[in-house]
Design a binder for these strands. Structure first.
Length: 479
RNA sequence: GCGGAAAUAGCUCAUUUGGUAGAGCGAUAGCUUCCCAAGCUAUAGGUGGCGGGUUCGAGCCCCGUUUUCCGCUCCA
């Protein structure tokens, strides 16, 4: 796997130095795996978000968007399987690095004792375990494991970590009185907000299968290991679409969305060889088929987006737990059924890292006379935080006034940036560093014939254009 | 979570065995400048991640902690 650690480090530094991404709460030493988007990072994020949203909703007549709350009824997560799969105390063996569920480990040891004819000892052990589990006494559980001399079956040692409660979901209290009943979770995925609103949207939108519901929003996972910059964060943003189809047609729709989503990535102008599909062999509890779209980051091929065929798992589960019918009457076949679901789920933060990785370029511009280089972010113009910089060549002779007029004309249409400080070359380079695709320079000739030079970021070429063509030229490139 | 490495100015890094911190780039202000990091002048930025300890004295040694990166592990 080709990796380029130096490039990854350089991108992280660049992101901080030029106002894209900062570590959260940095003045307090930061918070692990939590990041803030700065002035240009937030623009970039918004542009990517908007591009996805538009391509999903506006461009598909049968897909609509929603914006569900982060807080959801606690039963949601019982139905989805999130509570049961992630609430058991675990312990790791330090030598084999194997992780065990504490109850499984102790029960296995009790079985062993029983086979050795020590039934009383085994029963006592299980009784102690149940008492400790009931009290959530994790330290007590570890002591129990150590006192019983329970060994790892792989390493054969009793070199254990502390017992820890693994729950990927963050919990908090709803209401000011904290008791068991009011505990709720921050959603670990946005998908459930779509499933619980399936009927609302289908009925009020008069949606006919096949149709989709899209959503963009924050999700929270208390990852054990969260690393690699914004690639894996504890608070992150997902862009998801659940596509509801007639049972029996799910395979063709799965293939359709697999292809369709890759097309979206390629529409950003990113070379196809940077992407690959990774089909899952081992499937999650809900999945019938699943694949990832992986992008070749500087740290290797990594998942950016998942396409999953979820069957009727989610809607059926919610139907079971809520006791509300979540079905669709299909006029074409005259049948009621729980629709099958194809999910496309892309990480917004990962997409930002993808776009940054693709855009980040160090160029050597040296000539025999002079050493020269630049760092340029070659964003697709439609994603660039700033679309146009307006630069008077000199800050005198009335040039700033003309530049200001151009600013006023363009500002309402796209993000513009005005700058008169420093030599023109330096200003160009500064714009390169934050990925501004176009620079307009006002010079003395402008006063005579109302033309300016437009300088292109990637080629560094310039051409002379009339002032009244600026809007048209830039807008053509960013749409 | 295990193991490894690291943390000094916005960035990249110095500070040779412990003696109260510097550079380049960048930034800000001004002068100059007719198209690619130019030049000149001035200015601002660090209780050396944080907390203890050893010492007459710690950026440097020791312990803890936080954060980051790498490998393994995990990843609905």
């Amino acid at each position: 796997m080709a990796t380029d650690t130096n490039k990854f480090q350089a991108i992280i530094s660049h992101c901080k130095e030029y106002g894209f991404i900062f570590q959260s709460s940095e003045i307090y030493d930061g918070l692990s795996a939590v990041y803030d988007y700065g002035q240009w990072g937030s623009e970039l994020k918004k542009n990517i978000r908007d591009y996805w949203w538009k391509s999903m909703t506006q461009m598909h007549e049968n897909i609509v968007g929603i914006d569900a709350a982060i807080f959801m009824h606690p039963t949601t997560w019982k139905a989805s399987g999130h509570v049961d799969n992630f609430s058991d105390p675990m312990i790791d063996n330090k030598d084999s690095n194997k992780r065990y569920r504490v109850d499984h480990l102790i029960e296995a040891h009790a079985d062993l004792l029983e086979k050795e004819g020590k039934k009383a000892e085994a029963d006592a052990l299980l009784a102690s375990m149940d008492a400790l589990l009931a009290k959530d006494d994790l330290a007590g559980l570890k002591t129990l494991i150590e006192d019983s001399k329970i060994k790892c079956t792989v390493s054969g040692t009793a070199n254990w970590t502390d017992v820890r409660q693994f729950n990927l979901m963050f919990s908090t209290q709803l209401g000011s009185v904290s008791d068991e009943a009011s505990e709720i979770y921050l959603r670990p995925e946005t998908a459930q907000g779509i499933f619980v609103n399936f009927l609302n949207v289908q009925k009020t939108g008069r949606m006919k299968i096949p149709f989709g519901i899209a959503q963009i929003g924050k999700a929270f996972r208390n990852e054990i290991v969260a690393r690699q910059f914004v690639f894996r964060m504890r608070e992150f943003e997902q862009m998801e679409m659940q596509f509801f189809v007639r049972p029996g047609t799910e395979d063709q729709w799965y293939e359709y969305w697999k292809a369709e989503r890759l097309k979206w990535h390629l529409s950003l102008g990113i070379p196809a060889e940077r992407y690959r599909y990774h089909d899952h062999v081992k499937l999650a509890h809900y999945a019938k088929a699943a694949c990832d779209i992986e992008y070749e980051f500087p740290i290797g091929f990594k998942e950016v987006e998942g396409i999953h065929s979820r069957g009727d798992f989610d809607l059926s589960q919610h139907q079971l737990y809520s006791k509300k019918k979540l079905q669709y009457f299909d006029n074409e076949i005259n049948q009621n059924y729980v629709p099958y679901v194809i999910e496309t789920s892309i990480g917004l933060d990962r997409t930002i890292l993808l776009v940054l990785s693709e855009a980040y370029t160090e160029e050597d511009l040296s000539t025999p006379e002079k050493q020269d280089s630049r760092v340029v972010l070659k964003f697709p113009p439609k994603l660039a935080p700033i679309k146009l910089a307006v630069l008077p060549l000199l800050k005198k002779d009335g040039l700033p006034e003309i530049a200001r007029q151009i600013m006023d004309t363009c500002k309402p249409h796209f993000y513009c940036f005005y700058e008169e400080k420093d030599a023109i070359g330096k200003r160009y380079r500064r714009m390169d560093a934050i990925g501004t695709p176009f620079c307009i320079t006002v010079d003395h000739q402008t006063k005579e014939d109302n033309t300016v030079t437009i300088r292109y970021r990637d080629s560094m070429q310039q051409e002379r254009i009339p002032i009244n063509k600026i809007l048209e030229i830039v807008q053509k490139q960013i749409n």
